[in-house]
Design a protein around this nucleic acid. Structure first.
Lengths: 233, 233
DNA sequence: ACAAAAGTGTTTACTTTACACCCATGA
DNA sequence: TCATGGGTGTAAAGTAAACACTTTTGT
């Protein structure tokens, strides 16, 4: 850690969250956006973000931003990427660094906190406007990560209800990855063969048709397979 | 970007590089370390890093650190992860944020710049000491990334000479992933079937044995397959 | 002629894909 | 009894792993 002879940059660090959710009823992948009330980019939609406070870890700042916008019981959160602009911000006279986080929340119990002044809203990813700053780039990056994660990691179970049918799981995957990502019956057999789903022997009836079996994610069985690469798609 | 009522943290941002190289002659995966001359952790080895200067992008800082330690003609560089301590550093009175970068350089032409005071050295990953700060954690993270990258992305070609034999490529993979990562003949057929290697029809003789064909990476052919997932192992 | 390294081919087991078909329920 | 969604099975194609074998060079 040599002391540099040239002046160091002083930074204010932002955390910006790409918060996804899946509305399986309407088959839509959603992203949470807030509308800016101040310049620059006034009126534009942007990712929910915040400035990191004294004594606050990056992850804590990410959780705080999330908690300011929605109440959720279950979620998956991980760091995405750090974007650094090289020129100083005129307002603060300092440089901004944006550490982005990627979150996936359960739609059914994601209750939006809509304060008077700051519009917060789910957007279908397919109908998403141009965002402020470089947030469209961050969003695209987050979407790629989400698709990849689904293939080899059990994030879906962090966000599905505790008990779910194989069709619920399939709908979830279809909505994120697009239809034709896989044949339903092959998806079934693949997932069941992994041995990470517990059959509860309970059935659920939803309208017409044969009752579906309820499964739950078996965390112990999954932990035992931690080193083996899993393929969900 | 709401102005927060609570005091914001002021940051000094470091860039720390996990710089890997592969010595295919000795079958060793190497990482570049520097020995600390100041407290804390005086005498400990650490990842080469630097503080980000005014007007300097994160990536530029990563390249600068690299260029201060080694001269290379070819390399692969990407951002790894951002580690943020939540408590302020006593020396600077500010918080540190460490944005880590992951680099892979060609060993043959990585010429170490050894200044008088600051020892810089390649370490075999298998014989790597405990590092200063949380750098062992960062290194482990970088190693995992390297192994994953090799499986689905053509980083090896950024770091192999322009013309190489299939055995060179195999040695490279073996050294990083460990022997028994794959049978040589199966590796050959898999790589050739991808269609991203150009046969130059030139042969090279290295000691005894049948001359080997020289190949080169076919960037156009690879670009055409960009959307299809490739498997190198 | 033999060792060494490059390169080819083959056998076997497994996965993936596409699709046909049966099952259990409500209307 | 038929529509609807749940669930099983299977044939064909493709991939992976192990390994035997051939080819071309230096010594």
């Amino acid at each position: 850690m040599t002391v540099s002879p040239l002046p160091l940059a002083e930074f204010v660090v932002r955390v910006d969250n790409v918060i996804f959710s899946v509305d399986t009823d309407q088959n839509r992948l959603l992203v949470l956006l807030v509308q800016r009330q101040q310049p620059p980019f006034i009126g534009y939609w942007s990712l929910p973000g915040t400035l990191v406070r004294q004594g606050e870890s990056l992850e804590a700042a990410a959780y705080r931003t999330l908690a300011e916008k929605i109440r959720v019981s279950n979620l998956y959160l991980e760091q995405l990427y750090t974007f650094g602009e090289s020129d100083r911000n005129p307002t603060y006279g300092k440089r901004y660094l944006s550490v982005s986080y990627f979150a996936l929340v359960r739609f059914a119990d994601a209750e939006l906190i809509v304060p008077g002044e700051l519009p917060v809203q789910w957007f279908a990813l397919s109908a998403c406007p141009d965002l402020a700053f470089d947030h469209s780039k961050i969003l695209a990056y987050g979407h790629r990560r989400l698709c990849n994660k689904l293939e080899y990691s059990p994030v879906a179970f962090d966000v599905l209800p505790e008990y779910f049918t194989l069709n619920d799981l399939y709908q979830f995957y279809s909505t994120v990855l697009g239809a034709n990502f896989s044949d339903y019956s092959n998806f079934r057999s693949r997932l069941l063969k992994l041995g990470i789903l517990q059959d509860t022997h309970q059935k659920v009836i939803r309208g017409a048709g044969r009752p579906a079996t309820l499964y739950r994610f078996d965390r112990e069985a999954f932990a035992a397979l931690k080193d083996k690469p899993l393929v969900f798609v």
